[in-house]
């Protein structure tokens, strides 16, 4: 894309490897090495989410360039720090790919008859596009804009420019042509949060990283026996997910 010859799949495999070694590996293979961020560095010490040698995720809805965009976006929205690994290390990119391939991504439970008119904001979403189509259009439009503005696809930008780019989208200051920047950003933010905080069965929130960060116990068997005892006291049970009960 845009004369960029670096195969993203290799890049992604690198991202799948936790820690500074992987980041260094990416840098070594990339002519844009000086600008390639190492978003996973801090997780090397944390290491909560990513086992060392995970295979690349098979993709259901996104192509490799789109997946790279999503990885970069979710890692900007949810950066790695001492509270949690990054969004992609927590599986949020996997979650988004699977959601876009799901019935929901295909427009299930969504009224899709025309005419399609531009409404008032309070009338809600009025486009003919399914969520999957909308995201793919948004990714393409954002990459067009970052190429114009920064000379590169979004996922090739250094961390500071990724933050600037997403901020421009959020504030509606980026001109994405036929796609509303604000609308796309809000959809991206919403699905990222869904992936970070949903039960891990959907591919995100690996190792219940977000639940551990919050102190959300996930799926309790019951609180009937503890609600009185723990009123105004910290309740620090290890979280449990659907898989733990299955």
């Amino acid at each position: 894309m845009a004369g960029d010859t670096i195969p993203r799949r290799g890049f992604l495999v690198g991202v799948g490897l936790a820690g500074t070694a992987a980041a260094a590996g990416v840098a070594a293979s990339s002519p844009a090495s000086a600008e390639v961020p190492a978003p996973n560095q801090s997780s090397a010490t944390e290491g909560a989410a990513a086992p060392g040698n995970r295979e690349p995720e098979p993709l259901l809805a996104l192509n490799e360039a789109e997946h790279a965009f999503i990885v970069a976006a979710v890692d900007t929205i949810i950066p790695a720090d001492d509270l949690s690994p990054s969004g992609s290390e927590c599986g949020v990119a996997t979650f988004i790919d699977r959601q876009l391939a799901s019935a929901w991504g295909g427009g299930a439970k969504m009224y899709r008859s025309g005419p399609f008119l531009r409404g008032k904001p309070e009338q809600g979403y009025q486009l003919a596009l399914t969520p999957r189509e909308f995201f793919l259009a948004g990714i393409a439009a954002t990459n067009d804009w970052t190429r114009k503005t920064y000379g590169k696809d979004f996922d090739r930008l250094p961390a500071s420019e990724r933050i600037a780019a997403l901020t421009a989208l959020e504030e509606g200051k980026a001109d994405l042509g036929h796609v509303s920047a604000r609308q796309f950003f809000n959809a991206l933010l919403t699905i990222t949060m869904e992936g970070f905080f949903a039960d891990p069965i959907y591919g995100g929130n690996r190792n219940m990283a977000s639940w551990k960060m919050l102190g959300f116990p996930g799926l309790p068997a019951t609180y009937a026996n503890v609600i009185d005892q723990y009123r105004d006291k910290p309740y620090t049970a290890a979280p449990q997910s659907i898989a733990d009960f299955s």
Binding site: A198, I201, L219, A221, I242, S246
Partner: peptide
């Protein structure tokens, strides 16, 4: 039934039990 009924994404967000606007 537990655990499936505690699926926040399916029930609260993807609206499993609600009118199908399609």
């Amino acid at each position: 039934t537990v655990p499936s009924i505690r699926d926040d994404l399916k029930y609260a967000v993807r609206q499993e039990l609600f009118q199908d606007t399609q």
